[in-house]
Amino acid sequence: MSDTDFEPLTVTYEHLRHSEDSAELSEFARRELPDRADQAAFSRATALLEAVGGNAHTPVEDRIFLAETMPFPNVLVKLAADPEPDVRKAVAGNESDKNWLVGRLTKDQVPEVRDTALRNGKTSWKMRLEGAQNPEVDAATLAFLATLGTELEPKAPAVLSSMVRRAVALNPNTTPETLAKLADDPSAEVRHAVAKRRARE
């Protein structure tokens, strides 16, 4: 056991939050978590990871590691505000995210972060619809959104998923290949949107 195990949590937390020792921070980031059965030790460890994740002196690769692997909202919220887009992108792809956190990342200023968040299964239908309507979303993400409720998530709510596919059909970034697929969509609304879009071109 190290001396820090005997320190009050707040002392260790503040130390890690302000530490400039990247080796120490990296070691904490990669440290194996205690067994969940030991609730006190487990809670302490996850609280300390919040401090490590929020410290800019923690090496970027360790912050990305935490963003990809951690299921804890307190840690992910810190990392979702990271100045490095690659860290935010890793949070955006983490399927342990809460839907409100992914929703926040669908509005990120960096396209790769937004697109990754839109592909996350935890993203709400409201955010998916807004993404499908966004003229800045890339063609590959629109192609992904165009499959929701048909090829992907076939048991999704029919009305909501067809609204997303319809918005994809009307998005100027949607490729002719994606439009061709949507022209045979099971929803009449989507097929109508494709015809409307083609008539404008």
Results as ranks from 00 to 15, higher is better:
127 M>Y: 11
168 V>T: 01
183 A>H: 00
117 A>Y: 01
158 A>N: 09
50 E>Q: 10
125 W>D: 01
37 A>M: 10
28 F>E: 02
44 R>K: 04
174 T>R: 07
198 R>G: 13
59 P>K: 04
97 D>L: 07
46 T>D: 04
11 V>N: 05
129 L>K: 03
11 V>Y: 03
41 A>N: 03
156 A>G: 08
81 A>Q: 01
61 E>L: 15
152 L>K: 02
87 V>Y: 05
44 R>F: 04
120 N>V: 04
46 T>S: 07
42 F>D: 05
88 R>L: 07
97 D>P: 06
147 T>R: 14
128 R>C: 07
35 D>P: 06
174 T>C: 13
29 A>K: 00
98 K>A: 15
32 E>H: 08
124 S>G: 05
36 R>I: 11
97 D>Y: 00
44 R>N: 01
54 G>W: 00
30 R>H: 11
64 I>F: 09
133 Q>P: 00
85 P>D: 02
61 E>Q: 15
89 K>I: 04
195 A>F: 09
43 S>T: 13
49 L>E: 00
132 A>M: 08
95 E>T: 15
85 P>H: 01
151 E>H: 12
109 Q>D: 15
164 V>D: 10
193 A>T: 05
78 K>D: 00
117 A>T: 01
161 S>P: 13
81 A>N: 05
72 F>P: 04
112 E>R: 13
128 R>K: 12
91 V>M: 02
184 D>G: 09
69 T>V: 04
30 R>P: 11
162 S>M: 00
55 N>G: 14
164 V>R: 03
85 P>T: 09
99 N>M: 14
98 K>H: 14
92 A>L: 10
77 V>L: 11
190 V>L: 12
175 T>E: 09
140 A>L: 13
36 R>P: 01
74 N>A: 08
52 V>W: 02
105 L>M: 01
64 I>W: 04
36 R>E: 01
109 Q>C: 12
144 F>T: 12
59 P>V: 00
170 L>D: 00
141 T>N: 13
174 T>K: 08
50 E>T: 12
2 S>R: 12
87 V>A: 06
138 D>C: 15
66 L>Y: 09
196 K>D: 13
175 T>Q: 10
122 K>F: 04
86 D>Y: 11
8 P>L: 14
54 G>Q: 02
161 S>M: 10
165 R>G: 13
60 V>S: 13
197 R>L: 14
150 T>L: 15
12 T>C: 11
149 G>Q: 02
142 L>W: 03
17 R>K: 15
191 R>P: 04
181 K>T: 10
178 T>D: 03
103 G>M: 06
6 F>I: 06
63 R>V: 09
116 T>E: 09
93 G>M: 08
178 T>M: 06
7 E>D: 02
51 A>K: 08
50 E>P: 07
173 N>K: 15
188 A>L: 08
62 D>T: 12
72 F>E: 04
162 S>I: 00
95 E>A: 14
76 L>Q: 05
